[in-house]
Amino acid sequence: MIYKLGNNGIKLISELGELTLFALSSIKSFLPQNHRLEKIVRAIYEIGVRCVPITLIVGLFTGLVLGLQLFYVLTKFSSESLLGQAVALSIILEIGPVFTAIMIVGQAGSALSAEIGIQRNAEQIDALSTMKINPIGFLVSPRVLAALICFPILTAAFNIIGIWGGYLSGVAMLGVDSGAYWTRIFESVSGQNVADSMLKAFVFGFLTTLVCAFQGYYTHIKASVPGSRGVSETTTRAVVISSIVILAADFVLTSFLLVR
């Protein structure tokens, strides 16, 4: 039992080390290669453009639901006029970055992990090495960089459409004063809040993309059975670990940002 616990602890620490090295080499191997812009554009298309519909839909409904829920809570204190503030702050500070990140992991992160995993199994990654092409630079770095661009953009879109969703349910359906809704938002949300939201998205993008790529890249080692089963195993694990990482990082970031 103790042996097992210690063993798992050592495993966890060494996995963390591997991930860190993987991150370093993905940063290091971006510059020394050709056609960088083309690869980033391609990766932004996969991670960013394809995730626009789901981000907007989820953002809208999140805002709608928040508007409803918070309205009923706030009515109890007869402070419906605070609705705008409550919706905007909870979306910008927490829900926006976290939901967007989870959504992108579900759509793009899993795809990325599976694709790299299959490329590993089809020896395409080995083929890259024998062609003297750095596989991490070719497959991973552009995606990590694209994520750093896409996550904040999609989070911003989520925030805006979420606030409009709150407006729809709170103002248009439940009759909160439109002026109070917006004034409260403009008064309470500071530029700092928006910057924090973007910072969170940035960090989530970096971490989740790395985790997903890492799981796929080492599917032959990480999975209990290599092969198609293994790819499905590492893809699932990529999504699960990414989700945990998002929430854990959110906790850490929030506590830092609140202290400041």
């Binding site: 554009v41 960013g48 910008i92 911003a156 805006i160 500071s190 530029g191 928006v194 910057a195 939201s197």
Partner: peptide
């Protein structure tokens, strides 16, 4: 792809700008 990505980034920057300037009140 290049065109849609360009559109995406442009719209995204506008979103961030809107958040920061209008809602964030910077």
């Amino acid at each position: 792809i290049e065109f849609t990505v360009g559109l995406f980034v442009l719209a995204g920057l506008l979103c961030i700008l809107y958040l920061a300037v209008s809602i964030g009140g910077s």
